[in-house]
Write a protein that binds this DNA or RNA. Structure first.
Length: 944
RNA sequence: GGGCUAGUAGCUCAGUUGGUUAGAGCACUGUGUUGAUAACGCAGGGGUCGCAAGUUCGAGUCUUGCCUGGCCCA
């Protein structure tokens, strides 16, 4: 049977709106992005806030690296930042947010070199300047791509004026910071153990190293102990070529060692009968077997520490090699003694430096021993290697040799084996006491900023454990090596004066160079050096005034670690742009940034480099507060990786869900820990989105015909409306606190639950009767609409930071195309919405009663007695409400006062218009309320 | 291997200083619904709080160990 349309339907005030139920986010959001840019929403908000003299809130952005597409990690952190910036704007702050990019560094340079190779050429076919130009173009290409993706996230910001670390002004700014650190005596040149390719003749970064199987010549070598007859320390090594650089032997302090007296050996064995050999107890069997010892006696036992002070002779040079404790010595293999060549190993170098051993690297960049090396000087290490073994065999210090295949580091490009070389590098000193820091060291002063102390205010670390995390890193980190032997980066604009063996630290010189870089970019440095115009790098007359001969100067050709670039953005972005009327100008005496917000890996990265450079140059942290987030992991809590095949890209998600849903996913998660991503979780976000959207649609539909001047004063409203405003006051207060403390998921949760529980389940359901059936401008209806009107404004403004697309769509739907929600501030809570505790208590009881009644009605329904609540009559204690109010709240037809709660099928006649039961109906056939409403609104009382 | 950190219903989250049968929303199941209908209401089921010891009259909450993850180092 075809459904017949109720003739009264047309006389009802049913919801009316063009706001579609289906959002079509993937298609519509990009239009909003363009619209916001066209309207310059960001610029307008800022102009408005500045005109108001609003307080500043500066969230400073850690620049993403200008290479590749935005991934989920980017999406997470840029959405979080946008929540914060937008919520600050909404709260009335002036919150400048400037996007930026980290541009220099290896990854871009690699990509460019890769491109060059594809052309069948090598980087040597190009000048450094040409390489840099290509790097610059490459970075710019990705900046354009990332900018589009970033904007698509819905991020508000100063898109017309982003910062780039490769902009000339920023490059100059980076040099200025270097100059400050040099002037403060914090920069020095020293040695560092680096991975080196003798083929490419260059130091390699960690990421350029691969591991491959390599066959090495292993040797057991005897070191004669001084003051003892035929008694030896035995070492084992896979790199015989490092023997000329041996300076010491390391033992493990807590291992037991034994002395074995050789009493018999095989014919091939090099072990001599009568020799006494020291070896770790755990490794003696291996030594005996490998070296062909057939008979022996254990003639001594002692702990590692007992070797302290022992001295041996180098196997083929006339010099000592003393025994030292080695933190890295294990008894997994070898002999429990490790030969130390400080120039040729990470741990060796560290021990060598701590113990004051000779660190000089006697191997040249091309792998040839220099002239200081006796016997083997001028020979290539790989070729000399066998000769070294032969020499030791001849002089009797070799105990055994064999070939051994193991995993060995090679250059990812040439696949040639790498070596460790101690090379000269530039460092920032962590432990140098300097006058500029009140006689304290950079490490001490930075710790004061982290933990609070001295005259420095403690940084607020959120979550709290961040404090300990970065603190323990600063406590234990070595000096900061800031030099790189590369092309794409800001030069270390330092001159070594060979004559005085000092560096030029005059700030005037740095400023002069910075000015040149401001004009010409980083090429200003190299181009003058290469053209032999070094004197141009000095202010006019400076050389003569300071009696410096330009020929004595050795201008450095290294570039800076890119962590200096981004680590100094507090200076060349924030401080440089903070003058009167400029973007970051602040008069509140706070640090340059209120907040840095990044993933927790940045305790080692950007938070770390930023606080060090800021303390080094300005004696204080660059930020008041640091908020960290976790990482995006899959539904099982595992990280995304190619090998697991569980990765997702924001670009795919945008096509299936749209950004507001992705943003809801972020908002619903506690980002202080890792946040999970799965299809199931995204389904939850989609469901939540639909709830919000339908709430908006209900509000818009029922506000049809309403306008601001019809709004009713709170005091004139029915109690139910007052109660709802009271509840709204409560939830908005909660959300404010949540935003203020960056607990976005609490804000989301409070608003979502409010929409579900207070609105959809209760208020909307209860008030549909009044909204649909009362006269259009009846008091009850206008009061209700006034509440809906506040709800519309509060919900859109409070949700605007989280779902900017949908809230703006909603807001403009009601307030007009030219009124963006993003130009507003939070709507409410207004003081007169709040009621006293007794009022709240009474209404909470009403809701409890409602639950009890509903349970009873549900049983009635199960018996098939009733369908909708309007079929029901209820008896209950009125408890201070009128029967009329109970009818409204329970959406039932009849209420009678009684002792307990009972429910029954309503009696009388059902009004065909509002479905409520009445003992009598009006003459027109509808109930008296409907009858009046029909008359007031000018409908014919009897439906045609 | 070291530092930091987490593990409460299918999902996302609450659970103050240890104290009554561990909560919420969503999802799920059932059901109602000619007026929010790819929407909405009502009701219901669902957790030995990662595991194992220990402290305590009493532990999701404290201690130790283990398991499984995450970030950063070596």
């Amino acid at each position: 049977m075809a459904k017949e349309k109720n003739p009264y339907s047309d006389t009802l005030n049913l919801p009316q709106t063009d706001f579609p139920m289906r959002a079509g986010l993937p298609v519509n959001e990009p239009k909003w992005v363009h619209r916001w840019l066209d309207e310059d929403i960001y610029g307008k908000i800022r102009a408005k806030r500045m005109a108001e003299g609003a307080e500043k809130f500066i969230l400073h952005l850690g620049p993403p690296y200008a290479n590749g597409h935005m991934h989920m990690g980017h999406a997470l952190t840029y959405v979080l930042k946008d929540f914060i910036v937008r919520s600050k704007f909404m709260a009335g702050y002036d919150s400048p947010y400037v996007p930026g990019w980290d541009c220099h560094g290896l990854p871009v340079e690699w990509k460019v070199e890769e491109g060059i190779r594809k052309e069948g050429k090598t980087k040597y076919d190009y000048s450094t300047k040409e390489i840099r130009d290509r790097c610059r173009a490459y970075a710019n290409k990705w900046i354009d791509v990332q900018k589009g993706e970033w904007q698509r996230f819905g991020a508000l910001g100063d898109w017309d004026r982003p910062y780039k670390t490769m902009d000339y002004a920023n490059e100059a700014g980076i040099v200025r910071e270097l100059g400050k650190m040099v002037a403060r005596g914090l920069v020095y040149k020293g040695l560092r153990s680096t991975m080196w390719s003798t083929v490419e003749e260059t130091a390699l970064a960690e990421a350029e190293v691969e591991y491959k199987d390599k066959e090495s010549t292993c040797i057991y070598v005897k070191f004669a102990i001084e003051g003892k007859e035929n008694e030896y320390i035995v070492i084992w090594t896979t790199t015989p070529w490092t023997m000329p650089s041996n300076r010491a032997i390391a033992y493990a302090a807590d291992e037991t060692y034994v002395a074995l007296k050789v009493e018999g050996s095989t014919d091939e064995s090099l072990a001599k009968v009568g020799d006494t050999l020291w070896v770790a107890a755990k490794l003696q069997e291996e030594l005996i077997r490998t070296c062909g010892i057939t008979e022996f006696a254990t003639v001594g036992t002692q702990q590692g520490t007992d070797f302290d002070g022992w001295v041996t002779k180098h196997p083929f040079y006339e010099r000592e090699s003393k025994l030292l404790e080695g933190f890295h010595v294990t008894t997994d293999s070898g002999t429990g003694f490790v030969h130390i060549a400080p120039a040729h190993g990470q741990e060796d170098f560290q021990i060598g430096r701590e113990q004051g051993l000779e660190l000089h690297c006697p191997v040249l960049g091309n792998g040839v021993y220099d002239e200081t090396v006796e016997i083997f000087g001028g020979q290539h290490i790989w070729k000399a290697q066998e000769k070294i073994v032969d020499l030791m065999r001849e002089n009797g210090s070799l105990l055994h040799t064999y070939k051994y295949t193991h995993s060995y580091p090679v250059s990812w490009r040439s696949k040639s084996p790498l070596i460790f070389r101690a090379t000269p590098q530039w460092f920032i000193a962590l432990d140098e006491k300097t006058e500029a820091l009140n006689g304290k060291t950079l490490r001490e002063k930075t710790l004061e900023a982290i933990y609070g102390g001295g005259d420095l205010k403690k940084v607020n670390w959120v979550p709290e454990y961040g404090e300990n995390r970065i603190g323990s890193m600063i406590k234990s980190r070595p000096d900061w090596c800031i030099s790189r032997q590369r092309a794409w980066g800001v030069p270390i604009t330092v001159f070594l004066n060979r004559k005085t063996d000092s560096i030029i630290d005059d700030p005037k010189v740095f400023e002069h160079i910075a000015k040149l870089i401001e004009q010409e970019g980083i090429d200003a440095w190299d181009s003058r050096i290469e053209a032999g115009k070094v004197e141009e790098l000095f202010p006019a007359g400076w050389l003569a005034e300071n009696n410096v001969n330009v020929d004595d100067l050795d201008p450095q050709r290294d570039i800076m670690d890119v962590w200096i670039d981004s680590g100094t953005t507090h200076a060349h972005v924030l401080r440089a742009d903070s003058g009167e009327g400029q973007r970051f100008h602040r008069t509140d005496g706070k640090r340059p940034a209120d907040l840095y917000q990044e993933g927790s890996d940045q305790h080692r990265g950007w938070f770390h480099s930023s606080i060090l450079t800021s303390v080094a140059c300005y004696d204080d942290a660059p930020y008041e507060e640091v908020v960290t987030s976790g990482f995006v992991v899959d539904g099982e809590g595992r990280k995304f990786s190619k090998s697991l095949g569980n990765g997702v890209e924001p670009r795919e998600l945008l096509d299936t869900y749209g950004m507001d849903i992705i943003r809801l996913w972020v908002a619903s998660s506690d980002y202080s820990e890792d946040i999970r991503y799965s299809d199931e979780i995204m389904k939850g976000a989609s469901d939540a989105y639909r709830r919000f959207r339908n709430t908006f649609r209900f509000l818009l539909g029922n506000l049809h015909g309403f306008s601001a001047e019809k709004a009713m004063d709170v005091t004139n409203m029915p109690e139910l409306e007052q109660y709802m405003l009271h509840r709204l006051h409560k939830v908005l207060t909660e959300v404010r606190t949540a935003y203020d403390t960056y607990k976005i998921h609490h804000a989301y949760r409070a608003l979502y639950d409010f929409c579900n529980t207070e609105l959809s389940n209760f208020y909307f359901d209860v008030r549909k009767d009044v909204l649909y059936c009362d006269a259009k401008e009846g008091d009850r209806r206008l009061a209700c609409q006034t509440v809906l009107w506040h709800l519309l404004q509060s919900l859109t403004t409070y949700l605007a930071p989280i779902i900017p697309f949908t809230t703006d769509e909603t807001y403009r739907q009601w307030f007009g195309e030219n009124e963006s929600v993003h130009m507003q501030t939070f709507h409410g809570p207004e003081a007169n919405w709040q009621k006293d505790a007794a009022f709240e208590e009474q209404w909470n009881n009403v809701l409890n009663t409602r639950d009890a009644v509903n349970q009873k009605i549900e049983s009635l329904r199960a018996e098939g007695e009733v369908g909708a609540n309007t079929d029901v009559a209820v008896t209950l204690p009125l408890n201070g409400l009128t029967a009329e109010q109970w009818v409204e709240v329970l959406v039932v037809s009849q209420i009678a006062e009684g002792e307990g709660v009972t429910v029954a099928k309503a009696s009388g006649h059902k009004c065909p218009r509002c479905w409520m039961y009445h003992e009598t109906l009006a003459e027109s056939g509808v109930c008296t309320r409907c009858d009046e409403a029909l008359k007031t609104d000018g409908h014919t009382t009897k439906a045609a």
